[in-house]
Design a binder for these strands. Structure first.
Lengths: 277, 277
DNA sequence: AGCGGTATGTGATTTGAATCACATAAGCGG
DNA sequence: CCGCTTATGTGATTCAAATCACATACCGCT
């Protein structure tokens, strides 16, 4: 009944009750833009929230948490592990930056809103991602809002504790700096996309390509799970909901992409690339 | 040695010949968006390029170079001080990131260009600014192009040397991370400006306010030197040259700003702010 | 002065895409 | 199964701003 590649099922026990063909399940389970590099979605769901950093299964895949044994033990000792419900705000734009956060499990939406209510979604953070680092280091209020997209587990570390930790472990400082570089580069690309791709079509194309590239590392098939609403996509591409709908349909009519449920495949990357200009 | 064909001139010999009073000279000497915090243009021009990091007069005003004595001595020992002619490219978008650069004297334009030739100017780097850090740490090609706007002095440090230096001095890693935070926040604001200020007027207003704020730290008078061409401003505000001309004139007619030569004063910041939306 | 190049000013025209205004469809909760 | 809410699809209309097409001004130079 399901030729739908997006369906999430547990290979072991069939644990997930969501057994279906459509995208709704994908949305409910909050499986947004897959941040899981080489792993399949099915795998992803068999994993449990880590109890501590030493046994964290995400560690090896993720930048920051992948430390030397000593540093890791130390790191495990600081901060507080917390669970957050769907929709919970870890921190909001403008808040004093008192803590640094690390996603251990779940997905967190990072966004920023202007006074008139327009929202820009910067990224969807996943396990291993550091949040709030830039604000803490620069000693300024949080520049973004972090909201749990699904129940998730997050480690909260007090600013001073974190800074001290960095001081104790040179290697960790390095990782922090690298994490920041990554953040920077991401935002840089956002800015570039917004500034230089003159047309809405160009910006959307760029966005899809960026997602595709990071999701299907290497493989020739550019396919990824895209469970954001058109509205949210519009917020990332700097355009309007209606335009996203129209363009997506147009791309589909032109056979440049195919959409099946929540999964999108880019068939003609070069055509999209050309729109980028 | 030399990354590109940059002209290296003797630092001892002919110092800068710039001696002037009016705005034209401001343009020639590349005195773009003043990065010099509390200092006047006149003062600025009386300063000479530093000979070494220990005696550098910019050190105390600037993040990264303001290190502990030991670290500073070490820092002084690594890297190569070079002079570059106006227009010289320190590195270009897409180049392998082999070095980190620190501006010791002069102004350097940081920009990025899309395939179709449109340019986004990210910032004008001044003394004390680090360049190329993100690319080096993230191990990716340079994402931007750095071009000297005027004869300037730049310290070039090989990637490995720099990383080793950071390893030796925890405090320096911290500064590097802070420098990155700053970069990040700047680009973040660029992205936000582009994404959320719906109108061209809003983006331009935001840009002027940002410049004004960073230039006239604290003082009630928001005045700064703005020697970019309308074309260049357009590239930063994500709009067209003609629109910049029109808007600037409109702001002036409305008495929100005054322009005298290359110097702009923001008279009614709140009015501009309102456009931001 | 006179010239050539770049920067700026301003109208007229065109256009991409936001906005408005609905219709349709699809979850979801009882 | 039935409404309620939230997502998506599509036309018609509007509008800001890019583009085009010049005129003007200003700078640095010989």
């Amino acid at each position: 009944m399901r030729e739908d590649g997006a369906v999430v099922e547990d290979p072991e026990a069939g644990a997930l009750e969501v057994v279906e063909t459509d995208e709704s399940s994908a949305r409910r389970s909050g499986l947004y833009l897959s941040q899981s590099r080489g792993r399949t979605m099915a795998e992803f769901h068999t994993h449990h929230p880590p109890e501590d950093c030493l046994n964290c299964e995400h560690r090896h895949l993720r930048m920051f948490c992948n430390l030397t044994p000593e540093a890791l033990r130390d790191f495990d000792a600081i901060g507080i592990m917390m669970n957050h419900a769907r929709g919970a705000k870890l921190f909001s734009e403008g808040d004093v930056a008192r803590n640094v956060f690390i996603v251990c499990f779940g997905q967190v939406k990072i966004s920023s809103t202007s006074r008139d209510g327009k929202t820009m979604i910067l990224k969807i953070a996943g396990p291993g991602d550091l949040m709030g680092l830039s604000a803490v280091l620069a000693n300024v209020p949080h520049e973004v809002t972090a909201e749990a997209l699904e129940p998730c587990q997050v480690k909260t570390i007090r600013k001073q504790e974190f800074v001290d930790f960095l001081g104790r472990h040179g290697i960790a400082s390095m990782h922090a700096a690298q994490a920041l570089s990554g953040e920077y580069l991401t935002v840089f690309h956002d800015a570039k996309r917004l500034a230089l791709s003159g047309s809405a079509a160009g910006r959307l194309a760029r966005l899809l390509l960026d997602w595709g590239r990071s999701a299907s590392n290497g493989k020739p098939e550019i396919r990824f799970t895209m469970a954001l609403t058109h509205e949210e996509i519009a917020n990332m591409a700097g355009t309007s909901r209606e335009t996203v709908t129209r363009l997506l349909n147009q791309f589909r009519r032109d056979q440049w992409i195919t959409i099946k449920g929540a999964s999108m495949t880019i068939v003609k990357p070069d055509q999209l690339e050309r729109l980028t200009a």
